[in-house]
Design a protein around this nucleic acid. Sequence first.
DNA 1: GCCCTGACTCTCA
DNA 2: CTGAGAGCCAGGG
Length: 120
Amino acid sequence: MVQNIKPQYRQIWQTVQAIPAGKVASYGQIADLAGLPKRARLVGKALGCVPKNGWQGQAVPWYRVINSQGKISLPQGSDGSLLQKQLLQDEQVVVIGCRVKLKDYQWQPSIDELLFKLQF
DNA sequence: GCCCTGACTCTCA
DNA sequence: CTGAGAGCCAGGG
């Protein structure tokens, strides 16, 4: 049972929820924004532990998180990767193979959003 | 407490 | 841009 929700996971999920639809972010970016520099891998783990129902009544758009190369890190052919591709495309994000055009779709946090994060 | 693994990232060729 | 290698941190056995 995973009842002890780790604060870091919570923070990561919260940050992921801040990603606007139609945009994507890298693990490192999320880790950094969540106040966990160099914990990109932990972000992946956190996403793997995301409750299926979401967090605090909101869905956690884990599929908007990809690696710094703009690729889906999940094994190709796995349910997760296929689902991620589909969900991204539903958000009008072009996905070629397992690749996304970071140049066009990478999320660039605005000042407001950064200030919002600083409140915590 | 050591060792291995991992939804990562950076650097170099 | 792509691929290979080394680095890094946290979790689980």
